[in-house]
């Protein structure tokens, strides 16, 4: 019920990532691109001596527009032993969920429907709770 969430903006929409999953929020400076990978993988960046895979959340959801961010904020998450930096438009504060994630009749729209675990009520209003494991596997795999 009182799950802590990292509030952020993805593709102009209010979204949230479960705070327990987030190790830290960083500002991504240099990204080394990796040729041959899908669009949503921006490349690698180094955090201390570890390499993080940088994921563009907007593209990963399946939206056409890439993340537009001034300070390149990203949430660092660990999935199956691999570290990812989830690049978002903006990363705000940590807030509390006021409800369980619920589905909304009619869905959240293309892409979002697959990438979101549901809608939660927060202090800032209704927010989409993002499923990070879906994010890192990208839009193509979900479709398959």
């Amino acid at each position: 019920m009182n799950e802590l969430l990292l509030m952020c903006t993805i593709a102009g929409r209010r979204a949230a990532i479960p705070a327990v999953e987030v190790q830290s929020v960083i500002e991504v400076e240099n990204i080394t691109p990796i040729p041959g990978t899908p669009d949503f993988i921006l490349g690698l960046t180094a955090l201390r001596s570890q390499a993080l895979t940088v994921i563009d959340c907007s593209l990963a959801i399946g939206l056409e527009q890439a993340c537009t961010s001034k300070d390149q904020r990203a949430a660092v998450v660990d999935i199956d032993g691999h570290l990812y930096a989830l690049l978002v438009d903006e990363a705000h504060d940590v807030g509390e969920a006021k409800s369980e994630p619920v589905a909304v009749p009619g869905g959240f729209g293309e892409g979002w429907q697959r990438a979101a675990r549901g809608m939660v009520e927060t202090d800032g209003g209704p927010t989409l709770l993002v499923d990070i494991e879906h994010l890192v596997s990208g839009p193509l795999r979900q479709a398959a």
Binding site: Q50, T53, H82, Y84, S137
Partner: peptide, 10 residues
């Protein structure tokens, strides 16, 4: 170091 599965797929 190992790389993420999505990169591995390439």
């Amino acid at each position: 170091k190992p790389i993420a599965p999505a990169i591995m797929e390439t």
